[in-house]
């Protein structure tokens, strides 16, 4: 045992505290629509900087789960505890369902991000690209025009959008550019947790590859934790450290992404993996 305790702290240099404190802890989450059970007894823990993928077919409950986690939908039962770092670094996790509306809104604008499948749901199409990026800083008090614009320019560069396009409205952007702008808009406040709903759905393969590359880089560089919902196993293979497979409201298999995909145990996961067509 002594050897273990001697090597452990070295391996965990990335974690700030000696004991890793979870960022998000979900326990016993249930959600039904009438008699249809969308999520049944979901438990999982997400650590800072970790990316978890949720895969499953349509109707498996993965999007409902994401909406519950991100505070957009109230679960029927269960708790979603998040590390708000209220007061001190080691303050206990707080159930987001107990937060007041202003507190929750603040959380969504600062510490959380949500990347929608359809950029139209996540962007203001009638506001310039720069304005889209500046909205979150402005919502939490930034007022200096020059600073906000500089920040917007910085983020456009990071998501590989030409700075000359800063005053263009997103509706004239291509699908891939809109999605990259949506990512910039979410990451500008340096959230610690980002929810993504099919972030590459609806994009052409050649464009999707670039977005995946970018997301991978940003998530790793900034140490962002993310919950990625997708039906595309190749996307989770690239982005996610861990994977949960949902089927009819249940998590039927969970584990390290490579482990689950290379050696699927549940019959549904096996079917899913074997259904993927490769060129």
């Amino acid at each position: 045992m002594t050897t273990v305790s001697a090597t452990r702290p070295e391996r965990m240099t990335r974690a700030s505290a000696a004991v890793r404190k979870p960022l998000l802890k979900v326990e016993g989450l249930n959600k039904s629509f009438g008699r249809t059970v969308a999520c049944r007894n979901i438990d999982f823990t997400l650590y800072p900087g970790e990316v978890i993928g949720i895969v499953g077919e349509s109707g498996s409950g993965k999007s409902t789960l994401l909406n519950c986690l991100s505070g957009r939908l109230a679960p029927d039962a269960g708790s979603i505890a998040y590390d708000l770092r209220r007061g001190s670094e080691d303050a206990p996790l707080v159930d987001i369902l107990t937060l007041s509306e202003p507190e929750r809104r603040m959380l969504m604008r600062t510490d959380w991000g949500f990347v929608h499948q359809n950029p139209r749901d996540g962007l203001r199409m009638a506001v310039s690209a720069g304005g889209n990026i500046g909205e979150r800083p402005m919502a939490i008090g930034a007022r200096h025009y020059g600073d906000i614009r500089r920040e917007a320019e910085d983020w456009l560069a990071r998501v590989e959008i030409d700075i000359d396009r800063i005053d263009d409205k997103p509706r004239v952007f291509s699908g891939g550019m809109q999605q990259r702008l949506q990512i910039a808009r979410n990451l500008v406040t340096r959230p610690r947790l980002v929810f993504m709903d099919e972030p590459t759905g609806g994009l052409d393969v050649s464009v999707q590859a670039r977005l995946l590359d970018l997301l991978r880089g940003l998530v790793r560089d900034l140490g962002i934790a993310a919950v990625v919902v997708t039906h595309d196993l190749a996307v989770v293979r690239l982005l996610a450290d861990r994977l949960m497979v949902m089927w009819r409201g249940d998590v039927v298999e969970a584990g390290l992404t490579d482990q689950v995909l290379d050696d699927p145990h549940h019959p549904y996961t096996q079917l899913l993996v074997s259904s993927v067509l490769q060129a």
Binding site: V205, A209, L212, D213, R216, A234, L238, D258, V276
Partner: peptide
């Protein structure tokens, strides 16, 4: 540019 399920190497855009 197609992600390859068999290998976790990133696809090339």
């Amino acid at each position: 540019s197609m992600p390859d399920l068999a290998q976790p190497a990133p696809p090339r855009p």
